[in-house]
Design a protein around this nucleic acid. Structure first.
Lengths: 187, 187
DNA sequence: TTATAATGTAATTCC
DNA sequence: GGAATTACATTATT
């Protein structure tokens, strides 16, 4: 998660840095003491969240059958598979062979199914957002009750909504600056 | 994160629901929606902390120019209001009147750019964490030197890491209790 | 393809 | 230092 876009944030560190070059070659021996060279098992203890939608069956079972068919496609990577035309999401769940694939499979298993807000839900959320984009826990709970949503969904919605607003502001400002800095050559 | 408050309660959403019926007939109290009942003055603490990235210019100035773009406005209604009154962006920063407004602004004015730790940094931090999740100032300083990070980042990282660990423990316990209380009817 | 729900986590604030 | 909450970057779904 952190290494993907590592060039994103400007890191004002200007000391001589051994971070990327040779981390195992530090003069002090923390790495050795801690056995830094051992294979990493950092993923074992992380990412365990409460995901009730994974447990339940029946109406709440959003997952697709795991052992129905065999995927007749050979792919080298999950991304290839994902981008392959004609391969439905349903089929993707059914391959149990490849490691990367399994990893991705479990990944799919662990993600909450995307919530599709109804029109009215959106309408109310937007109305509240216009007045207060940072509703407290009480308002969120009340909204959750009224809208038949988890409070978590409310909170996430407001977070995403704030990000969207900020994005739009940024774009607006960018365009304004761009326009103001661009002399109108046409005339 | 997203586990605030009611994160532990799997909400089956079976309550009586007004979502589709009458969205405009909500019984929210104005004060609560507006967040006026629990509004705290966060502005009094602004500037109380040491935030060198706010002061410096040049290479350390991660911010975009205050004027023209990267408008740190979130509440569009207020923003529109001010702009209609001819208040410039810079003036908005200096506005000492509106608490909610300053609250929004303070986040943008003084927020440190998100640090993207490298893979090696994370690896070392995780290794240290396994051995000691409460490193003293000496270890933190040593880590900071070796990893080319501010000691502050180290401290925050361990703080967040402890929170993460605690979260995972809590969720594991929750699942265990839930499982033990759920008789396996399928046998 | 786009919009946005969901995720992980660094950063902030208050206690 | 912990709890809660936020912004931010990113992923994945529709």
């Amino acid at each position: 998660m952190c290494e993907a876009g590592a060039a994103m944030s400007p890191n004002p560190q200007k000391r001589s840095c051994v971070t990327e070059t040779n981390p195992t070659k530090c003069s002090f021996s923390i790495e050795r003491i801690l056995g830094l060279d051992s294979k990493k098992d950092l993923t074992s203890t992380v990412g365990k969240h409460n995901r009730p939608w994974m447990e339940c069956r029946g109406v709440y079972d959003w997952r697709l059958p795991l052992i129905s068919y065999n995927l007749p496609i050979q792919v080298d990577s999950v991304s290839n598979l994902l981008e392959k035309k004609g391969v439905s999401v349903y089929e993707k769940y059914c391959d149990g062979e490849r490691l990367t694939f399994k990893r991705e499979l479990s990944w799919y298993r662990g993600r909450r199914p995307r919530t599709a807000f109804s029109r009215n839900q959106i309408e109310i959320l937007e109305n509240v957002f216009r007045v207060n984009s940072y509703p407290g826990i009480d308002v969120r709970e009340e909204l959750a009750t009224k809208l038949c949503l988890d409070e978590d969904r409310i909170q996430i919605w407001f977070q995403n909504r704030r990000a969207k607003l900020k994005r739009s502001h940024r774009e607006t400002q960018f365009l304004m600056v761009k326009d103001s800095l661009t002399p109108n050559i046409q005339e």
